[in-house]
Amino acid sequence: MDWSKAKTILIVAFLITNILLGVVLFLSGRQVETATKEGFIEDVTKLLNNKNILIDTEISREIPSLNTLIVEYEILDLYEINKNYFNGEGKIESADQGSKGIIYNNEYVLIENKKKLTYENNNEEEKYTNLNEEQAKTIALEFLQDKNYDTSDMLLYYAKEQDNSYRLEFSKIYNSRYVERANTIVEVDKRGVKKLERIWLKALDEGETPIYISTAPKAVLSLLSMEEVYGKTIKDISLCYYFDPIEQDYLKEYKNPKKGKANPAWRVLFDDGYKVIIDNYNR
Rank of each mutant, 00 (worst) to 15 (best):
T184L: 11
T184C: 09
T184M: 15
T184K: 12
I185E: 13
I185L: 12
I185W: 05
E187G: 01
E187M: 11
D189Q: 02
D189F: 00
K190H: 11
K190D: 14
K190G: 10
K190N: 15
R191C: 00
R191L: 00
G192P: 03
G192V: 04
V193C: 04
K194A: 06
K194M: 11
K194R: 12
K195F: 09
K195Q: 14
L196V: 06
L196D: 03
E197Q: 14
E197S: 11
E197R: 10
R198F: 10
R198M: 13
I199T: 15
I199Y: 11
W200I: 00
L201I: 02
L201S: 07
K202I: 13
K202W: 12
K202Q: 12
A203N: 06
A203H: 06
L204F: 05
L204P: 10
L204E: 13
D205Q: 15
D205A: 05
E206C: 05
G207P: 09
E208R: 13
E208W: 00
E208H: 05
E208T: 15
T209F: 06
P210R: 01
P210H: 00
P210M: 00
P210I: 04
I211N: 01
I211G: 06
I211R: 02
I211T: 09
Y212A: 12
Y212M: 12
Y212Q: 10
I213V: 08
S214K: 15
T215F: 05
T215R: 11
A216G: 10
A216V: 05
P217V: 09
P217A: 10
P217T: 07
P217H: 08
P217K: 02
K218T: 13
K218L: 15
K218H: 12
A219I: 07
A219V: 10
A219M: 04
A219S: 15
L221A: 05
S222M: 09
L223E: 02
L224P: 00
L224T: 03
L224F: 01
L224G: 00
L224C: 01
L224R: 01
S225R: 11
S225I: 11
M226C: 07
M226K: 14
M226I: 14
M226N: 13
E227F: 00
E227W: 00
E227K: 14
E228Q: 13
V229A: 02
V229N: 06
V229M: 04
Y230V: 07
Y230S: 13
Y230D: 12
G231L: 03
K232Q: 09
T233D: 07
T233M: 02
I234S: 07
I234M: 03
I234T: 04
I234Q: 03
K235V: 04
K235A: 01
D236Q: 15
D236R: 14
I237F: 00
S238Y: 06
S238K: 14
L239D: 09
L239K: 08
L239R: 03
L239T: 10
C240V: 09
C240L: 03
Y241L: 04
Y241K: 01
Y241P: 04
Y241T: 07
Y242A: 12
Y242V: 08
Y242N: 13
F243K: 05
D244C: 05
